[in-house]
């Protein structure tokens, strides 16, 4: 493994990113993936005190739905274990949305505002106070900041000759990101995930590029995809330093 990693973004949006990292071993790549899922903490509702719930759902069912609502998490201002109080009061006929939740801290808001929590009919009312706590994905899946985080090998596509004139035209499906002979990185959905669309009438060979991994990262809105990745790497770094200290003679 080299000392320097080379990172190249293919897509970079607020909540999702796709990038190639070179100079990794599979162990490190998987370590980063696991750190993104379990080691980066997010705020999530943990305790709910119901004042009134006359809706068609039980308290527990509403508690479960509330736990799954992503909350924006300013990680610089909170430590694991800190909590924030939230409240909601909606009277029917109306639908209680995640956007109706009021928070005691301006930095903590529901990341999505149109999540229906419960539809209330005439005379029904939902009022509660809740505590959101900062925890890691290890304690509960609702605290996972990363959604569908994964990686695959970068594949190189090389033209090795022409396809036989009377060969049957079969689709050659490939997903993710490929490297062309010129060293250009192309997302496969640009050509319908089918290599025969990009190289018609050619015979191509696909090989894995050693030490290069294509990551796909999405977050639930608690923080940006960039922050998720950086925090995950920080956590690996911190644990490596801790191990080094522990075994130092």
């Amino acid at each position: 493994m080299s000392d320097e990693f080379e990172v190249e973004f293919i897509e970079r949006e607020e909540r999702s990113a796709r990038f190639v990292v070179r100079g990794l071993t599979p162990a490190i790549a998987n370590g980063i993936r696991r750190a993104m899922i379990t080691d980066v903490p997010t705020l999530s509702i943990d305790t709910v005190r119901f004042v009134e719930n006359s809706s068609v759902m039980f308290d527990e069912m509403i508690g479960l739905r509330l736990g799954l609502v992503p909350l924006t998490t300013p990680l610089d201002d909170f430590e694991v274990g800190d909590d924030v109080t939230l409240a909601l009061d909606v009277e029917g006929p109306a639908t209680a949305y995640s956007g109706d939740i009021e928070t005691s801290d301006e930095l903590v808001q529901p990341a999505d505002e149109n999540i229906p929590i419960i539809e209330l009919k005439e005379g029904q009312r939902l009022e509660f106070e809740a505590d959101a706590v900062l925890e890691t994905g290890k304690s509960h899946a609702k605290h996972q900041g990363g959604v569908a985080v994964g990686y695959r090998h970068l594949q190189k596509v090389e033209v090795v000759g022409d396809a036989g004139e009377f060969d049957e035209e079969e689709p050659n499906i490939l997903r993710g990101v490929v490297e062309t002979e010129e060293g250009e990185l192309v997302a496969t959905d640009e050509f319908g995930n089918d290599l025969t669309n990009r190289y018609p009438g050619k015979e191509v060979e696909v090989t894995d590029v050693p030490g290069a991994f294509v990551f796909h990262v999405e977050t639930d809105g608690s923080f940006t995809a960039d922050e998720l990745l950086l925090r995950a790497i920080d956590s690996i770094d911190a644990r490596a330093a801790e191990l080094e200290d522990a075994v130092a003679v």
Partner: peptide, 15 residues
């Protein structure tokens, strides 16, 4: 009853 807040499989917010 109500639409599940997240996808059962991947955890993406669908509601």
């Amino acid at each position: 009853m109500m639409i599940p807040v997240r996808c059962f499989t991947c955890g993406n917010v669908v509601a």
